[in-house]
Design a protein around this nucleic acid. Structure first.
Lengths: 336, 336
DNA sequence: AAGGGTTACTACAACGTTTTCGTAGAAAAA
DNA sequence: TTTTTCTACGAAAACGTTGTAGTAACCCTT
């Protein structure tokens, strides 16, 4: 373990511990020559202040938590990168917690974070989260919370999100204009507000273009991957097969491709496909996938920036402030 | 901030702080009824012990660091997932640091970790890392280090890796058997031992099958994405165009696809492609990409398991122990 | 020369745990 | 009965840092 501490430096320099501490923090109370002596010895002995002692004393850990459903996913991976970039700039450390889309894991993480381990939390809800008491409790402990993407409407906290409703609308509109008459919507957990918004965009899109809404064109993919795949395949194999599919998340779009392959359906001839996705390989798929791409990296940066503004009490924005970063429609051959 | 502490519990219960502390840790020195009283009140008041006080006192933080070049990449994302899974089981917290393939960022991260902030480190080298003094210093501070994938041969530490040499050989062999006569190898930073091993596999593969080795078939993609892309395109546009390409990392394989598209080359007719990759969409690309897939998730789990064994002093394995998890060749149409 | 102000430091308490050492009282052994 | 051994708890000292409250020594006033 690290063993060189203030006391040792102080003894070596014939100074008091407090003087050394202040010298290292470049306090004006310490004379320049003394500071220099302290700096030099600290460097020579490779002194690293004990962060835990400091955190204990100052009630600040310079650490934040990022709580997300999964990481093996371009969206969340890029968001993490954005968050880490800003955190690094600010001298903060980033703890990562994966909930695996499991509400109870999210709760236990949140409970754990009440210990004061972190100064703030950036979170994207798990698909299973039903109530948000565990997050309210975090707020009650004065631990600032910032949501991104999968936000929680019932909690007052800054939120970084995309224009989900508009994107859902645009995706649907795009399919309709491409000639689709029966458009299916694959959605994940309906307890998430992004799901509602994307779905509302979908239904309003149908309405706007006088397309019928059919209940069986909504496929709720809330289970595990195999179950979801089965549902999708069943949809595509039914005699009520849709001629357009709007997947609300990346992995569902990928499963549509697999199902079409298995069933011998040709995209876009038999069925056109559009999906929310940050796949770097979208343009290389066969056929290239039309996507609604979210600015994941920027969303991460923005969420982190907002959190640090709160932590540094720079300016307190309204607690329910939301930042909307628009997603981009990228038309490719899967909807031609 | 968190405000309920041992002292308050103690006062409320008419016990001493030490008794409460011990009761919560279920010490045999405390009577069952007393323990029960303590447990009940702790639960009622939602007591969470201050982790920093605890870490300071115990010289253990129950926190590890994961230092990787990037996260927006299926391999590293899956590895993180594996690490986080094991860490969660063991009650550890995971700090994440991205070096962005930058050697100096890796150094500054390592320097920072000398503070004793973490009990151990899991690291995959940045492509730019030239010397490893910063890592040696970590070890000297008694902070256990475990490498995965991009290991550092010159440091004695457990290493979790794939069979890079064999995989390089197999990839080359596969291309040769598919009828390639001029095989290019796209490699990343040659300061990484995995690059050497994969390359050695490549050259030995050529040798074994009496294929000529041509220096200009080695493309070192050590710069930024645009430069790398240019090199790849130049290679494919040259009159010495290869008929097979072995990409040592995922992103280079993707760039080959883009370059082929730009140049109007058809895979696999004009050029066959194989690449190290964990792309979930490999089979959906046009054409489907033949890959060498590393068991990223398991590598992460294994690295974490080894680290925790060291931390818990379960059994000290030889310091230079290596675990080799074999990669899998998945033949798809890009090499047919 | 006495008072006031500044400069450059030091002593000490505090942060919330854990741990070492100690001990009152009860039970067991003599 | 006295002595020893348990049982169940408490007091206090760490861990390494930071903040508060001091204070010698010096310079500047008047």
């Amino acid at each position: 373990m690290n063993t060189v501490n203030l006391k040792q430096l102080a003894k070596e320099l014939n100074l008091s511990v407090s003087t050394v501490s202040r010298a290292l923090r470049d306090s004006w109370e310490i004379s320049t020559p003394t500071k220099q002596r302290v700096f030099d010895l600290a460097k020579k002995m490779n002194f690293q202040p004990n962060p835990y002692a400091s955190s204990l004393r100052k009630h600040r850990s310079r650490t934040i938590a990022v709580v997300i459903p999964e990481v093996a996913n371009n969206f969340f991976a890029l968001a993490i990168k954005g968050i880490e970039t800003i955190a690094r700039e600010k001298g903060y450390h980033v703890l990562i917690y994966l909930t695996n889309e499991d509400g109870s894991e999210e709760m236990s993480v949140a409970a754990n974070l009440q210990s004061g381990r972190v100064d703030g939390v950036i979170l994207s809800l798990s698909g299973e989260t039903k109530d948000a008491r565990h997050l309210v409790e975090l707020q009650q402990r004065n631990i600032p919370l910032v949501f991104f993407d999968r936000v929680c409407d019932s909690i007052e906290a800054p939120k970084v999100m995309t224009n989900d409703y508009e994107s859902g609308f645009v995706a649907t509109e795009h399919l309709i204009k491409a000639g689709c008459h029966r458009i299916a919507h694959l959605t994940i957990s309906m307890s998430l507000s992004i799901s509602h918004k994307r779905m509302k965009g979908y239904t309003d899109g149908l309405l706007r273009y006088d397309q019928p809404f059919e209940e069986n064109m909504i496929v709720r993919c809330e289970g595990n991957d195999e179950e979801n795949y089965k549902k999708i395949r069943d949809l595509l194999a039914s005699d009520q097969r849709p001629d357009g599919i709007f997947a609300s998340v990346e992995k569902l779009a990928v499963q549509v491709y697999h199902a079409c392959r298995e069933l011998g359906l040709e995209i876009p001839r038999d069925v056109k496909v559009i999906g929310f996705s940050n796949l770097v390989t979208a343009s290389l798929l066969s056929p290239a996938l039309t996507t609604i791409a979210q600015p994941a990296y920027d969303m991460g940066k923005e969420a982190a920036t907002i959190l640090f503004r709160r932590l540094e009490k720079k300016y307190i924005l309204k607690p329910d402030d939301r930042v909307i970063l628009p997603a981009r429609l990228e038309v490719r051959s899967s909807t031609l």
